[in-house]
């Protein structure tokens, strides 16, 4: 994932989870903070879809359970 896209992804996380950008790092995990719960996860998925104009596969919705994992998976989508 290039720097520009990484930056966009950080924005998507920070906006959806309503957290500071510097909290969006490789240690950030689903349910690791109160803000990242099932509701915000679903919102996050659609925010990422809108940001990059992609459709995320059903199976990947469960796989994207950390910021790091999300970056890895998004590389499948040529980002």
């Amino acid at each position: 994932m290039n720097d520009n896209n990484t930056e966009l992804l950080i924005d998507a996380f920070a906006n959806t989870l309503e957290i500071e950008k510097n909290m969006v790092n490789d240690h950030l995990e689903y349910q690791g903070i109160p803000q990242w719960d099932s509701i915000t996860h679903m919102i996050l998925i659609s925010e990422i879809e809108n940001t990059f104009h992609i459709e995320i596969d059903a199976d990947d919705v469960l796989e994207m359970n950390s910021f790091q994992k999300t970056k890895e998976i998004l590389s499948k989508y040529n980002l």
């Binding site: 099932s38 509701i39 679903m42 998925i45 596969d57 059903a58 199976d59 919705v61 469960l62």
Partner: peptide
């Protein structure tokens, strides 16, 4: 309802 929306999104029906 929200659980069913999630189930739908994560491919439960497939």
């Amino acid at each position: 309802p929200f659980i069913y929306e999630m189930l739908n999104r994560i491919g439960f029906l497939k």
